[in-house]
Computed example of a mutant assay.
Amino acid sequence: MSTTTQTLNSPTFSTVIRERRSVRTYDPSVKISQDEIKEILGEAVLAPSSSNLQPWRFLVIDSQPLKEKLLPIAFNQKQVVEASAVIAVLGDLESYKLTETIYNRSFEAGYMPEERKNTMITNTTKMYSSFPPEVSKKIIYTDGGLVSMQLMLAAKARGYDTVPMGGYDAGKFTEAFGINERYVPIMLIAIGKASNEGHPTVRLTVDEVARFNEMSF
């Protein structure tokens, strides 16, 4: 099997968003290196998040035996074993524990004065640690969606294909892969090179889904 590094030829953003498809059939001979997956993730994590706490965590599954283990958990969807990797996007319910790390780095980078840094650390840690689980989950699902979409667009910009997957048994997944209750599965994303292009789809028009200033649907 080949190891592939896709050339990034800087397609326009408009091209990327129009050519991205949800692909379910992949060329199993194409393997994306772990270094390149890290580069894609490095672009994905530039996504915004609540208070910049970046609660996303990723489990990259690129071992074929582990993909085979995942297959029945994902209801035997063949992209799990054909794609180069499956990236599990997880949300950290205790992401506030890294508040000090994040804001110290912001201070060291010159993005905020020390007094503001200290205030942000104190207030953010106190607030997020006091949230009930349902509030924390709402936040991490929102932030997890943002980083997931950015991941898929970053992959497409490099010539790779993806499909977001909600069809899997989250309980069996966390048990099989040793994920403790601190982390909530958001979605799985298969990534690789399509063997068949994803089929085009239609969208409702902007006029059908948007209103200015008042709801009049």
Score class of each variant (00 low, 15 high):
residue 213 N to L: 14
residue 19 E to Q: 11
residue 208 E to G: 06
residue 24 R to Q: 10
residue 27 D to Q: 04
residue 185 P to N: 01
residue 157 A to C: 08
residue 129 S to K: 13
residue 117 K to R: 15
residue 139 I to Y: 07
residue 40 I to H: 09
residue 178 G to Q: 12
residue 82 E to T: 09
residue 32 I to N: 09
residue 72 P to Y: 14
residue 157 A to D: 01
residue 82 E to I: 01
residue 79 Q to T: 02
residue 124 T to Y: 02
residue 70 L to P: 10
residue 89 V to A: 00
residue 25 T to F: 14
residue 204 L to W: 08
residue 144 G to C: 09
residue 14 S to I: 12
residue 42 G to A: 13
residue 42 G to P: 07
residue 63 S to N: 15
residue 82 E to P: 04
residue 69 K to Q: 11
residue 51 S to A: 15
residue 84 S to K: 01
residue 24 R to Y: 04
residue 13 F to Q: 10
residue 130 S to L: 05
residue 149 M to C: 03
residue 163 V to R: 06
residue 160 Y to H: 11
residue 142 T to K: 13
residue 102 I to Y: 00
residue 151 L to T: 13
residue 215 M to G: 09
residue 122 T to C: 14
residue 4 T to H: 13
residue 181 E to C: 07
residue 148 S to C: 11
residue 152 M to F: 04
residue 204 L to P: 05
residue 193 K to Q: 12
residue 154 A to D: 08
residue 8 L to D: 14
residue 15 T to W: 01
residue 189 I to V: 07
residue 156 K to G: 05
residue 31 K to Q: 13
residue 129 S to A: 09
residue 49 S to A: 04
residue 171 G to C: 13
residue 131 F to P: 00
residue 77 Q to K: 06
residue 154 A to C: 02
residue 44 A to F: 04
residue 133 P to Y: 08
residue 71 L to V: 09
residue 71 L to R: 02
residue 31 K to N: 15
residue 29 S to W: 00
residue 214 E to S: 15
residue 3 T to L: 15
residue 87 I to M: 02
residue 208 E to D: 11
residue 97 K to G: 10
residue 93 L to Y: 01
residue 100 E to S: 12
residue 81 V to E: 01
residue 205 T to A: 03
residue 131 F to M: 12
residue 200 P to Y: 08
residue 14 S to Y: 14
residue 66 L to Q: 14
residue 3 T to M: 14
residue 130 S to T: 00
residue 73 I to G: 02
residue 186 I to F: 02
residue 33 S to I: 04
residue 207 D to E: 03
residue 176 A to L: 03
residue 49 S to C: 01
residue 48 P to Q: 08
residue 14 S to P: 00
residue 167 G to L: 14
residue 53 L to H: 02
residue 23 V to T: 08
